[in-house]
Amino acid sequence: MLLIITEIILFFTEDFLSKDIQHLKSIDNITKENNEMIIIGNSLTRKGINETLLIKNLKTNKTNYKKAGIIYLDDTSIIEWYYVFKSYFYENDIIPKKLIINFALNQLRTPELEFEELSRIASYVPIKKLYATCEQETLNFSQKIDLYLAKFFRIFCHRERISKRVLDLIPNYRSTIRKLNVYNKPKKKYFKNNHDYRHLDKIIEMVEIAGIELIFCAMPLPESYTIDKKIISIIKGSDNCTIIGFNEDNYFTDYHFVDGYHLNPEGAQLFTESFADMISNKVSQF
């Protein structure tokens, strides 16, 4: 009874929980816009790309792309991007000409699936595909239950968002938890299988079948970072894929970042201009 009441309340109020939910709901509209170019990323993309400027620059560069659908879901990485593209586009026969995936650091590695990832996957995958997803991801018993709970109950699906909203009321919570997490079983999430690129392989396989041009773009961060050679070799192994990198770019200084990760509006403008040039010219830096 209590869960039903909560579900009803969340049904009407979930949009107010975060902009991320509003954006998630808008993906259906993006699929209907017949975009020939789709850009997928996370908050680095949300903060890093000035959409109006991008379209303007693409037109200036005389490309065929008059508009682009941009999908930026917070805290996501390759596994979520794979399911977003697969569920919203590929399986609905909505095939763009160009797909761009914006990533940073180790976001092309398949992470160990914890509740956060499962709840996000549950919100992208339709009910009829849940069983197949369990099989494909070889989920264990607990993970399967988590996936189904997140699919059928909003309170489970939005758990992270609600708890973050409440805990953010604690002074310095975000910065404190970020530091504490470093010492709580550090690197566990990726260490178990440090070079697991299953979902990178799968998304490449998908674009090859559909004949989509796929560009991977390494986003700028305040500190430069290197990209695993394995990633470069996987991407170079496909004729459909290209990789461009702002990971060691000297143009971006601390002045261009609003925090330890995200670009500020000036940084976004600078990045969008370079980004538009690079995707127009299809230049591979590697």
């Binding site: 805990l167 604690i170 002074p171 310095n172 919570y173 910065s175 404190t176 938890i177 530091k179 504490l180």
Partner: peptide, 8 residues
């Protein structure tokens, strides 16, 4: 971080 931890 003291304040954040106490808050938690």
């Amino acid at each position: 971080d003291t304040l954040g931890m106490m808050g938690m």
